[in-house]
Nucleic acid binder design. Structure first.
Length: 492
RNA sequence: GGCCCCAUCGUCUAGCGGUCUAGGAUGUCACCCUUUCAAGGUGAAGACACGGGUUCGAGUCCCGUUGGGGCUACCA
C-alpha cells in the first residue's frame, strides 16, 4: 500500500491539509505501507520559496514522517513536480498523438469573451471547444503566428462517466456537462489534473485520499486514467471541515470563530504557537470524519494506526469542533510525564522571554499540570514564579468576599506572625498553622487563603497556596505578605 | 444559475431492518469535593429535517422536498 500527501507550497500548512495528511499517514502505517510526500509546485505564479520548509516543519511537528519525498529521497523521485516537467510534457504529447487531447490556441481574452457571451445567454460557463477539431492547415496558421498552445483533454461529448469513491460508492456524471480541461499550460507546466494522474501512476500510489473539493474533477481524472490505459488507484474523498458555525469551509478568507466570537486559527503554525500538543492535534483531527471504533475519543496515534480503516470514514462534512480540541489538549497535557511536560513548558517560557531555572520549573510543573488547557496558559497561571520582579495586585484585590480592608489587613498580619514562627516551611507545616487561624479569625478558608494567595502571587487565580509558598520560600512569602498588609492601611 | 456530495442531541459521533422508550463524547446547567482556578465524581436538559413509499417491522432501504456544503481557472 502506498499513499501520498501532495500539497502545493503556497504558504503554511492549512489545518485541513494536516487532516488529509494524517489520514493518508494512518492508512499507510496501518498497512505497513509507504507514505509519500509530493510537492505540487506547478503554479509558478503562487510559488513561495519559504513554504516548503514551513510545510515540512508542520508535518514533522505532528509526527507524520514521510518515507519518500523531499529530503529523504526514494526510488520514485523526484518528488517535486517542477522537477518532473519533462515527464508531463511527454505524456501530454502522447495523449495528443493518440487523439485523446489537442492543442488549443485560444487566448485568455477569447476565453473570457466566450464566457461573457455564455453568461448573457444564461448558459453555464466553459470553453467552446473551438480548437478541438482543427485541420492541420489551421494549426499551421496559428503556429505561424507564433502562438504557444495549451493542451486540452478531449472529454467524451456524450455518455456518462461512472466514478467510484471508497467512502461513498458510485456516482454518475454526464459527460456533456464536463469540460475539455487544460492539461498542459502554455508555460509548459502541467495543471493539477495531468500531474496528479501521471505522478500517482508512476509513483505507484495504491490509495488516493484527498479533499472532497476534488470530487467534481473526479470524472475528468477517471477519463484520464482510462485514456492512458493505466490501472487506477482506489480513491477516497475526505469530507471538508467547516467553520464551527457550519457556514463555509475553514479558510483565511472567512475567518472561523468560536461560539464566543474569538478567532480561531486556520494554519498549523498558529496552533503550534498557541500551545497545542501534536499528540492532541492529531488525536483531535483523527476524530473528525473518522472514529476509533469503540467509545474512546482519547487515544494515541499508535492506537489509531492499529485501527485505522477507510470503512469508518464518515462521508458527511463536519463543523470544526474547537471545544473538543481544548479538552483533548488538556487531557494530553495531563497524560504527559511531568518531566516531559516541564520540557515543553520550558520552550514556551523561554519564547516568552523568561529566564528559566530548571529546578524551579520541575517543582512548578506538577502544580499546573491539571490546570492547563494549552501550554501557553503557564504564563498567566504561573508566570509569577519566573518573573524577576514581583507585580503586586491592586490592594482591593486582596479583599475577599464579605471582608473589608480592616479585617483583611488584620488577617494578613496574623498569618505573617504564624508563618514567621515556622522553621519547616513545607506545605503541611503551613497548613498546620494557617487552618486553625481561619477559625480563630472567624474566617472561611477561602477568605484567608484567598487573601494570602493574592498577596503572594499577585493574582486571584493561581497555583495552590501552600505548595506555591513552599516553592517561593519563607523569605519571599513573608516579604510579600508584609507588603500586602501595608498597602491596606490598617487601623491599630 | 448549472453539476455533484451530504443530512442522528448546539457540536463531534455510534447506529450498517427488529437489541433504539437512539448510545458515547464535548459543550451547557445543577449538585458533590474544594484554599482560587482547574481536575475529579454524580446528575439534568438535549437529536433520528420533512413528506411519500418498500417491508410484518425503518434512524437504518428507495423517491421527492427542504436544508447545508463543494465545484464551476492556462490555482491547487
Amino acid at each position: 500500500m502506498r499513499t501520498r500527501f501532495a500539497p502545493s507550497p503556497t504558504g503554511s500548512l492549512h489545518i485541513g491539509g494536516l487532516r488529509t495528511a494524517l489520514f493518508n499517514w494512518l492508512f499507510a502505517r496501518h498497512h505497513n505501507g509507504a507514505f509519500i510526500l509530493r510537492i505540487e509546485d506547478t503554479d509558478q505564479k503562487r510559488f513561495d520559496p519559504t513554504a516548503l520548509d514551513t510545510l515540512m516543519e508542520a508535518l514533522r511537528w505532528a509526527g507524520l514522517q514521510w518515507d519518500e519525498g523531499p529530503e529523504v529521497g526514494g526510488a520514485y523521485g523526484p518528488y517535486v513536480q517542477s522537477e518532473r516537467v519533462a515527464l508531463y510534457q511527454q505524456w501530454a504529447k502522447w495523449l495528443v498523438e493518440n487523439d485523446k487531447a489537442y492543442y488549443c490556441y485560444c487566448s485568455s481574452e477569447r476565453l473570457q469573451q466566450v464566457n461573457k457571451e455564455k453568461e448573457a445567454r444564461k448558459e453555464p460557463p466553459g470553453y467552446d471547444r473551438r480548437c478541438r477539431d482543427l485541420t492541420p492547415e489551421q494549426r499551421a496558421a496559428y503556429e505561424a503566428q507564433g502562438i504557444t498552445p495549451v493542451i486540452r483533454f478531449k472529454m467524451p461529448l456524450d455518455g456518462q462517466t461512472v466514478v467510484r469513491d471508497a467512502i461513498r460508492g458510485e456516482s454518475v456524471f454526464d459527460n456533456a456537462n464536463q469540460q475539455d480541461a487544460v492539461l498542459l499550460k502554455s508555460d509548459g507546466f502541467p495543471t493539477y489534473h495531468l500531474a496528479v494522474v501521471v505522478d500517482d501512476h508512476f509513483m505507484e500510489i495504491s490509495h488516493v485520499m484527498r479533499a472532497i473539493e476534488w470530487f467534481p474533477s473526479f470524472p475528468l481524472h477517471v477519463q484520464l486514467w482510462q485514456a492512458f490505459g493505466w490501472e487506477m488507484p482506489v480513491h477516497a474523498h475526505l469530507p471538508v471541515m467547516l467553520n464551527p458555525n457550519g457556514k463555509g469551509k475553514m479558510s483565511k478568507r472567512n475567518p472561523p470563530r468560536d461560539k464566543y466570537g474569538n478567532l480561531i486559527p486556520v494554519m498549523v503554525h498558529d496552533y503550534i504557537r498557541a500551545g497545542y500538543l501534536p499528540e492532541a492535534m492529531t488525536n483531535f483531527l483523527a476524530n473528525i470524519g473518522w472514529n476509533f471504533g469503540d467509545e474512546r475519543e482519547f487515544f494515541t496515534m499508535d492506537e489509531a494506526i492499529q485501527r485505522f480503516d477507510l470503512a469508518r470514514v464518515n462521508p458527511a462534512n463536519s463543523a470544526f469542533p474547537v471545544e473538543k480540541l481544548d479538552w483533548l489538549n488538556g487531557e494530553h497535557i495531563r497524560a504527559l510525564p511531568t518531566d516531559e511536560l516541564a520540557r515543553r513548558l520550558r520552550t514556551v517560557l523561554v519564547d516568552a522571554g523568561f529566564a528559566v531555572d530548571d529546578d524551579l520549573l520541575r517543582r512548578v510543573t506538577p502544580l499546573v499540570q491539571m490546570r492547563l488547557k494549552t501550554l501557553n496558559e503557564i504564563i498567566s497561571l504561573a508566570g509569577f514564579f519566573f518573573r524577576d520582579e514581583f507585580l503586586p495586585a491592586p490592594p482591593e484585590e486582596l479583599i475577599q468576599e464579605k471582608m473589608d480592608a480592616q479585617n483583611t489587613c488584620r488577617a494578613l498580619e496574623r498569618a505573617y506572625e504564624a508563618l514567621s514562627t515556622l522553621d519547616d516551611f513545607s506545605h503541611a507545616a503551613q497548613e498546620a498553622v494557617l487552618r486553625p487561624l481561619t477559625e480563630e479569625l472567624g474566617l472561611k478558608p477561602r477568605q484567608l487563603f484567598g487573601a494570602l494567595r493574592v498577596a503572594v502571587t499577585g493574582q486571584r487565580v493561581a497555583t495552590p497556596l501552600f505548595e506555591t509558598n513552599e516553592i517561593l520560600g519563607k523569605d519571599v512569602v513573608l516579604k510579600r505578605i508584609k507588603t500586602a498588609s501595608q498597602s491596606l492601611v490598617c487601623q491599630p
